[in-house]
């Protein structure tokens, strides 16, 4: 999480423009004290009751300076609940339009962008692909994607180390996504923080290149637990390495017994058809879901 890496989320830019942020300000409007419990209208309350501690009932309407009017306020909300609400909104928009969205996560240098470029080229004529690129700086990756003819927006997270659902929601607006298309979100290269932030995707896909250690799944378990598919990339290099595929799969299944694994090489093309078939199956599912929903309404 970002409590460990100390990143900040300001300075976010989408295709070079600042994304807007809403801030709630609390204005000091004199001392106000109440004896009742103010419940937030419309807020999701899971708590059974709220209570006060350290009551000091001052005479009504007296505003003695320095008087303590401490009270307790129950919150009972998950720290990530804001992000999760944005993610749910994104997911609803995607499902309504039959869009199959994947959140690609990995360490830097695992070959995500190369794999993505190859995937888009191979899907040409079969599946329309749109891409959201996340990096701290530069639009290099979005430029590489656009060179394939696919539409892409670049989110620069500035000091941030991950994409969050709010940024992705804005990027989706900008992209004007086409019904029944495929949305690939390339997250910031980082195996830690992106695990905790749901973007509204159908699946997280974690990419582990064979030039990394096979024990990465147990070193960064959160990410491998959050993912539904692990792509083992750069498999064309295996003859030159001591990397054990079996061991890597064993470690991945230790943290996530249900994770699927596909061995690929974006360079040689090995395994790419398995990966494309996996995408096709998911995309067909999203299309069917939209049609069923549409039929239900009609």
């Amino acid at each position: 999480m970002c409590t460990t890496c100390g990143c900040g989320s300001d300075e976010v830019k989408i295709d070079g423009e600042h994304s807007h942020h809403d801030h709630d300000h609390v204005h000091a409007d004199g001392t106000r004290h109440s004896h009742d419990h103010d419940h937030a209208p419309g807020a999701a309350h899971e708590h059974a009751h709220s209570h006060e501690h350290g009551h000091r009932y001052a005479p009504a309407h007296s505003h003695a300076p320095g008087m303590s009017t401490k009270r307790m306020v129950q919150i009972e909300q998950d720290i990530l609940s804001k992000n999760n609400a944005y993610a749910a909104q994104n997911r609803r928009r995607l499902v309504e339009r039959g869009i199959f969205a994947l959140n690609l996560v990995s360490s830097p240098g695992s070959g995500k962008t190369t794999l993505l470029v190859k995937t888009i080229e191979m899907l040409k004529g079969r599946q329309q692909v749109t891409v959201i690129e996340g990096d701290q700086q530069t639009s290099q990756d979005a430029d590489r994607i656009r060179a394939t003819g696919a539409r892409a927006v670049q989110i620069n997270t500035g000091k941030g180390c991950h994409l969050d659902a709010h940024m992705v929601g804005h990027a989706m607006e900008k992209l004007e996504l086409v019904e029944d298309s495929l949305l690939m979100i390339e997250n910031v290269g980082n195996l830690v923080c992106p695990a905790a932030f749901d973007l509204g995707e159908a699946h997280k896909v974690v990419i582990l290149s064979v030039t990394e250690g096979e024990d990465k799944p147990i070193k960064y378990p959160d990410m491998f637990r959050a993912a539904d598919l692990m792509l083992m990339n750069k498999c064309d290099l295996l003859p030159h390495l001591s990397f054990s595929v079996a061991k890597a799969i064993e470690f991945a299944r230790r943290v996530n017994p249900g994770i699927e694994v596909i061995e690929v090489s974006a360079t040689s093309g090995a395994g790419m058809t398995d990966w494309l078939d996996w995408i096709e199956r998911g995309a067909a599912g999203s299309r069917a879901q939209r049609r069923d929903a549409a039929a239900g309404i009609a």
Binding site: R71, M72, I75, E76, D78, I79
Partner: peptide, 11 residues
């Protein structure tokens, strides 16, 4: 695995 804001003491 919880990460929750439970309650606040406010004035």
């Amino acid at each position: 695995t919880e990460m929750r804001v439970k309650e606040l003491e406010v004035a």
